[in-house]
């Protein structure tokens, strides 16, 4: 408690000493903005001499994220991103996500039989690790940057930001096969400088693949201890998987 109050006092002291050094500049009230409308020009340009210029620039980065609707496997994904901007609005990007084949805590519980009815003829355990999993998802997208602006993070720290949407198609690599997939999403970049930024993406991937809850083979479920099965041993289903990713990108 004493430690916390010391920190608070130090912060207050730092702030007050800063104020003492500051020079007071008075502005009369009427000189401050009273209108929220903008000046009119023959051609409206929202920003001139923008700090972050992306036209004809390549962007490369990487990060991590989550497969938000994955029940059986580890939700963590790692991703690498590349983009080329034709101009300030239009561009192409390539998003590649590496998914984990490890079981999630829920998957491990099922494998251990937790919560499953025990007894003769009943599935005493369920081992999803025996089923094939999606290992990598790669999409090539058209990217549309709809907004470029700036945000005041603190009084002295302003960041530029851009908002964009994207959509495209790609491949999903399963343990033993590959399938086509589609995706659409949106994202935001917060720029530290004209060359570097953090990137937040939200995308929905749609693809087909083996359904681990629906094996064709007897006994109709996956008891623990068996050998891994191939995609052909499962009925196919369509996945709608939302992903949320974060990463750092650098613009060349």
């Amino acid at each position: 408690m004493r430690f916390v109050s010391k920190i608070v006092i130090l912060i207050l002291l730092a702030l007050s000493s800063n104020r003492v050094r500051a020079e007071t500049i008075e502005f009369s009230e009427e000189e401050l903005a009273t209108e929220s409308v903008m000046p009119v020009f023959d051609k409206t340009v929202v920003v001139r001499e923008r700090k972050v210029k992306t036209a004809s620039r390549l962007e490369v980065g990487g990060g991590f994220g989550f497969n938000l609707a994955e029940p059986l496997y580890d939700q963590t994904v790692f991703n690498i991103v590349g983009a080329y901007h034709f101009d300030e609005i239009n561009g192409m990007n390539l998003i590649s996500m590496f998914l984990s084949s490890q079981l999630s805590s829920a998957g491990n519980d099922l494998k251990a039989g937790k919560g499953l009815a025990q007894g003769p003829g009943l599935p005493g355990s369920y081992d999803a690790s025996r089923a094939p999993t999606a290992q990598n998802i790669t999409f090539a997208n058209y990217q549309f940057t709809a907004y470029y602006g700036k945000i005041s993070v603190t009084k002295d720290f302003v960041m530029n930001l851009s908002l964009y949407g994207f959509g495209g198609l790609g491949m999903v690599k399963w343990t033993d096969t590959s399938k086509f997939g589609l995706d659409a999403g949106f994202g935001q970049k917060l720029y530290f400088s004209p060359n570097s930024a953090v990137r937040f993406d939200m995308l929905l991937a749609v693809y087909q693949g083996a359904d681990p809850t629906d094996p064709k083979t007897s006994p109709g479920y996956l008891p623990a201890g068996g050998a891994p099965l191939g995609s052909s041993s499962f009925n196919t289903t369509t996945y709608f998987r939302p992903f949320m990713t974060f990463g750092y990108v650098y613009l060349f």
Partner: peptide
């Protein structure tokens, strides 16, 4: 740095010129 009066926010000039900032620059 200087005192911000009556809750008005000071945006330091960063080289970009924004349409909605025209007429709101204050020489310090």
């Amino acid at each position: 740095d200087y005192y911000i009066q009556n809750g008005f926010e000071y945006w330091p000039f960063r080289g970009e010129y924004w349409l909605n900032e025209l007429g709101n620059y204050h020489y310090v």
